[in-house]
Amino acid sequence: MIDVEHAFSKSYAEAREKFLAAANSIGKKVDSRQHPLAGKDGEELAMDIVLDGQADAQNLLIVSSACHGVEGYCGSGVQTYAMHDAEWRNNAKEQGVAVLYIHALNPYGFSHIRRTTHENVDLNRNFQDFNQPLPDNPAYREIESLLLPEEWPPNHNNIAATDQYISNNSVQAFQAAVTRGQYEFEQGLFFGGKAATWSNQTLRQVLRDYAGQAKQIAWIDLHTGLGESGVGERISTCREDKLALARARRWWDGGGTTPVTSIYDGSSTSALLTGLMSNSVYEECPEALYTGIAMEYGTLPPLQMMEALRAEHWLNINPQASKELSARIKKQMMDAFYVDTPDWREQVITQARQSLFQAAQGLKG
């Protein structure tokens, strides 16, 4: 067992080193799928996979991090801690559950402190059938010019117009317009892409390689950025299916103490989204019964989180910005998706462990 503080890291390279060391410490092989680009400090990037359990296990739990790059600073810490957690590993083994850790679904965003992939794509909006017409988001189109102004920080006119939109609609409507996913503005926020990204294609291959034999698949995908600071909201990632949602709630609601929410019934802090990553397990493992959640840890209030995202996207479009402004924006981005305090990290690990034990029991049951 390691202490909580040592599970977390200050950079992608450090996080990857700790994850690989954790796998080595329990005698598990690492399957590394190398990314085509380098990290911000020239380091190798990869999606790293560790299977802890039998390769032919019928019950499989997937635990993944960094779907949204920078959110990997939280998720990687959970994964590293879990592999050092003998009580958790023994419990999973006793329940007949194999655990598939997928570290850094989006290693580029993790390293470069971006939420998006190197294609500027939100990975959790990218799982679409690109041979079909893509979803339209007219609400995003209406405010696109406000979100990424020519200068940063925004001038008075931009701030006033943005505030007016929120006043006329609501914070929730603003959040929904921005975060739902859009497929029109390639440099914009929450862009779902025009084709499957490297991370999308690589994840699908990982599922084919490791999950094809499973009869039941549970998935805990680790996220940050929404909700009350330090609170892990369990958001169902099942399709709009009452039976699947009921199953997720039986597994993870802790007798009502840790409710499972849904984007389909309005109970989640998340807006209704398109192109979700969980589509991949339905498509690549169609014979398996799937039950999943996104574990969404809160950080900052929604408008502060949104401002950090706007600033970081602006910086990506304007790399000529001063070093001082660039550093300030990157710090703002980190603060929006990772709360660098011992109390927050302790909350993250405590709730993650609970969700892991719940998942193993659910799979067994």
Score class of each variant (00 low, 15 high):
Val4Ala: 09
Glu5Asn: 13
His6Pro: 00
Phe8Leu: 06
Ser9Thr: 09
Ala15Leu: 04
Arg16Val: 04
Glu17Asp: 15
Leu20Ser: 13
Ala23Ile: 10
Ala23Tyr: 07
Ser25Gln: 10
Gly27Asp: 06
Lys28Asn: 13
Lys28Tyr: 10
Ser32Glu: 02
Pro36Tyr: 05
Pro36Glu: 10
Pro36Cys: 04
Gly39His: 10
Asp41Tyr: 08
Gly42Cys: 02
Asp48His: 05
Val50Gly: 12
Leu51Asn: 06
Gly53Trp: 00
Gly53Ser: 05
Gln54Ile: 09
Asn59His: 11
Leu60Cys: 14
Ile62Met: 10
Ile62Pro: 08
Ser64Ala: 11
Ser64Gln: 12
Ala66Ile: 03
Cys67Leu: 15
Gly72Lys: 15
Gly75Asn: 12
Gly77Arg: 12
Ala86Arg: 14
Ala86Leu: 14
Arg89Ile: 07
Asn90Pro: 00
Ala92Cys: 14
Gln95Gly: 00
Ala98Val: 09
Ala98Met: 10
Val99Cys: 09
Val99Asp: 06
Pro107Thr: 03
His112Leu: 12
Arg115Gly: 11
His118Glu: 12
Asn120Trp: 12
Asp122Leu: 07
Asp122Pro: 02
Phe127Glu: 07
Asp129Trp: 01
Asn131Arg: 11
Pro133Trp: 06
Pro138Leu: 07
Glu142Cys: 01
Trp152Phe: 10
Pro154Phe: 11
Asn157Phe: 14
Ala160Asn: 05
Thr162Asn: 00
Tyr165Ala: 04
Ile166Phe: 08
Asn169Val: 08
Val171Glu: 15
Phe174Pro: 09
Arg180Val: 15
Gln182His: 01
Tyr183Trp: 11
Glu184Ile: 13
Glu184Thr: 15
Glu186Lys: 15
Glu186Asn: 00
Glu186Pro: 07
Phe191Trp: 09
Thr197Tyr: 07
Thr197Glu: 11
Trp198Ser: 00
Ala211Val: 11
Gln216Glu: 15
Ile217Met: 02
Ala218Thr: 12
Leu222Arg: 01
Thr224Asn: 01
Thr224Cys: 13
Leu226Ser: 10
Glu228His: 09
Gly230Val: 05
Ile235Arg: 02
Ile235Phe: 04
Ser236Gln: 03
Lys242Gln: 13
Leu245Met: 02
Trp251Ser: 08
Trp252Glu: 08
Thr261His: 09
Ser262Ile: 04
Asp265Ile: 01
Ser267Trp: 02
Leu272Trp: 13
Leu272Lys: 14
Leu273Glu: 14
Met277Phe: 06
Ser280Pro: 03
Glu283Leu: 15
Cys285Gly: 12
Pro286Gln: 13
Pro286Val: 07
Glu287Val: 00
Glu287Asp: 14
Ala288Asn: 04
Leu289Thr: 08
Tyr290Arg: 03
Ile293Leu: 01
Glu296Cys: 12
Tyr297Asp: 00
Gly298Arg: 04
Pro302Lys: 01
Leu303Cys: 06
Gln304Ile: 01
Ala308Asp: 07
Leu309Thr: 12
Ala311Thr: 05
Glu312Arg: 15
Asn316Phe: 13
Asn316Asp: 07
Ile317Pro: 00
Gln320Leu: 05
Gln320Met: 03
Ala321His: 01
Ala321Gly: 00
Leu325Val: 03
Ala327Glu: 07
Ala327Thr: 07
Arg328Tyr: 06
Ile329Thr: 12
Met334Val: 12
Met334Lys: 11
Pro342Gly: 10
Arg345Ile: 05
Glu346Tyr: 01
Gln351Met: 03
Gln351Tyr: 03
Gln354Phe: 09
Ser355Trp: 03
Leu356Gln: 06
Ala360Gln: 11
Gln361Arg: 08
Gln361Met: 04
